[in-house]
Nucleic acid binder design. Structure first.
Length: 374
DNA sequence: AAAGCGGGGCT
DNA sequence: AGCCCAGCTTT
């Protein structure tokens, strides 16, 4: 394994070109803010986190406030961000931190908290506590794979990349400012050493990059092929009570959309559902369900989902076990994106032959936003 | 080692 | 229509 290049040119570049980001502003060094940003940024782009970070911080300004909050508030604030286990773990970790009287200030201590793996422990240790460690995220994998021209495909290449990245901390300059060094690596990967069309001419390491010398930088890192996505179908039931409230159901705490709200329905399966077939899965018996036109599409990492929506007016009644009547505005805000798309079908006309309303329309007119089709 | 787990932004 | 993203947890 060749020596890594000197970190000095990278740090000099960072001092001139570092990105201005919400979690780099005032309050610097606050481990709560840095931890929150790292968790939000797990598999999530800076652009997506941007508008959500300040909002979350305003609602839960410190770890004590987050620890004291009920899960429903945390879930509603996280809704739409995805990977909801992050929110569950964030909440649990906040309670653990509050109970022990503050954040652990070492990588090993941080690693014990729920939702903190090898990457996040190293990132918080370096950025919040200036511990000399190198977190390896997608940016660092790409930068190191190119610098050293590592052709082994991911994820196997991590066995080579991680120790190579760790060797940077043998140098004096990064040890003097670990937080800046690791963020310099992130910024380099995000703005110069990008997945496609990297700006090698502007790179502080342009003379040190083995892949660039070989002209293969755009092909690295190589990746193993991933499995194909399955397709599943659902039919869901939206009941409205006389006050206009919606009947929603709590999903189980673990698994897909764990701990989040949903519009109750028949289980997702390979075959499509007919309304009659799905009727036993309706949340309330004996209602005059009418199918809406259109299908809500939602792609998860491992599954493409197509959902239809039936609606009915319900008499005033207590919500069944595990469900709740909710005002439409607060309900929609607390729903994960897949369920928001499904809910938007309620603006569509009734499906052909679905009830007393004459058809003749062409489907979900006015509902052709992303994920909706007729 | 592989699979489950969201959603948005960009090409 | 893919690919990628400041990954973690469970099997």
């Amino acid at each position: 394994m060749p020596d890594p290049p000197s970190a000095i040119p990278l740090l000099a570049w960072y001092d001139r070109h570092r990105r201005t980001l919400p979690w780099r502003g005032s309050g610097g060094g606050d481990p709560y803010r840095i931890w929150l940003s790292e968790v939000m940024l797990q598999q999530t782009t800076v652009a997506a986190v941007g508008p959500r970070y300040g909002r979350f911080l305003a609602r839960f300004p410190d770890v004590a406030a987050l620890a004291a909050a009920p899960w429903e508030d945390v879930a509603a604030e996280w809704a739409g961000l995805g990977y909801y286990a992050r929110a569950r773990n964030l909440h649990a970790a906040a309670r653990a931190v509050a109970a022990r009287g503050g954040f652990p200030d070492t990588e090993a201590g941080l690693r014990e908290l729920p939702g903190i793996g090898a990457y996040t422990a190293a990132a918080v240790a370096a950025i919040a506590f200036n511990r000399p460690t190198v977190p390896v995220d997608g940016n660092v994998e790409r930068v190191v794979a190119r610098l050293l021209s590592i052709r082994t495909p991911l994820p196997a290449a991590r066995r080579i990349i991680a120790p190579a990245a760790a060797r940077f901390m043998e140098q004096e300059a990064p040890r003097a400012r670990p937080g800046d060094f690791v963020q310099a690596l992130f910024d380099l990967g995000a703005t110069i050493c990008t997945p496609r069309r990297p700006a090698c001419a502007l790179c502080p390491w342009r003379g040190d990059c083995a892949a660039q010398r070989e002209g293969i930088q755009e092909t690295l890192p190589a990746k193993s092929p991933k499995a194909a996505r399955k397709r599943r179908h659902g039919l869901h039931f939206l009941a409205r009570d006389p006050a206009g409230r919606l009947l929603l159901r709590h999903r189980p705490p673990e698994g897909l959309l764990g701990g989040m709200l949903e519009i109750p329905g028949a289980p997702w399966r390979e075959d499509t559902w007919t309304l009659e077939e799905a009727l036993p899965h309706a949340p309330l018996p004996g209602l005059p369900w009418a199918l809406r036109a259109g299908i809500a599409h939602h792609g998860f990492t491992h599954m493409d989902l197509e959902m239809r929506l039936a609606e009915a007016a319900a008499p005033a009644a207590p919500a069944p076990e595990g469900m709740a009547w909710m005002e439409p505005a607060s309900a929609q805000a607390a729903l994960p994106t897949a369920m928001r798309r499904l809910f938007s079908l309620s603006e569509a006309p009734l499906a052909e032959g679905a009830g007393a309303v004459a058809s003749g329309g062409t489907g979900a007119r006015g509902a052709r936003r992303k994920g909706i089709s007729g």
